[in-house]
Amino acid sequence: MSRFLSREALLAWLDGLREGGTVVVAPTLVEGVSLYRQVPVASEIDLDASVTVVSPKEWLFPASHTIFTVERKDGRVDLRENTFDGRAVLFGLHPCDALGVHLMDVPFLAEPADGSYRERRERTALVGLSCIRCRPECFCTSVDTSPDDPTHLDVMLTLVEGGYVVAAASDKGEALLASAKPEEKALSLPEPPAPEKLPTEDLPRLFRALYDDGYWGRLADRCIHCNICSYVCPTCYCFDMRDYPRGNTAERVQSWESCQAPGFTRLAGGHDTRGSKAAKMRQRFAHKFLYFPETFDSQLSCSGCGRCVRACPVNIDIREIISDLKKIGVSSVGSGEK
């Protein structure tokens, strides 16, 4: 027997949570663009959303947010931290995005944890949606998840005729489902799709071997360092912190930034540790496939969602890079230098 929620019952459950004060963040169509947004009513959720253009990291790690505000008064400085004390449901995460959240947890919750992220993360439940189809750029099974994988989620939904099979994937999820009132039904789950499988095993070692290869320079030739890959990526977490002054007050704002951005590593005196196009390019992929796994228990920092593949204006395709590293590494062609 499975627990079943009709489409209407699902929306009613979410609206009930919302009315109880829980923020519901879900895929919606914003001027035709699929994005995660806080929804005023559950019927605005795009339940058929495939992979959103920008990842759900927008909720846990907003494009910009205020860490604290200082106010100058009578020669004193009053510092107030910005806190989130509500609770939220991040709804409609496909398994790749659930893995994406986990891959943000790993660096941000590592001690000393990023306070703002930890606060939002602890107060957010993840409700996932298994994939009934995949896109050509999907490769989640190459990076430790799969189209119906409930790992890292609190609740998993699977689309069936007329509604969803719903399953708790954690205690938090079980508690969340208390108000859902699912029906008990004998249902069989659809066969999950099979995305492309890439040769990701041994990637850090291959990367190390090809670290100084001319490959990165050639790849960087066509890169315009537009930052889109980092901004749509569920696992890219580089950030900037700058002040936003207004009269007697100033906010310290934490915002997304990309390792590809001009000036990202340029010091006040002008020295730049990653000044060349090739060094910038290598950093993005070395972080995902070498530095991150070496620092955090061999995990690759990639969720296989394919967003960067779809969004790159010059077709820098992470799947092609994985395959190239394997090819060059195995045939040991050497530098391929230009």
């Binding site: 660096p107 950030f239 900037d240 340029r266």
Partner: peptide, 19 residues
Amino acid sequence: LESKMKCGIGKCARCNIGE
């Protein structure tokens, strides 16, 4: 070594030289 950094706690991914 000197490197551009924002967070000081190994997160903002600016200051790394190699890993």
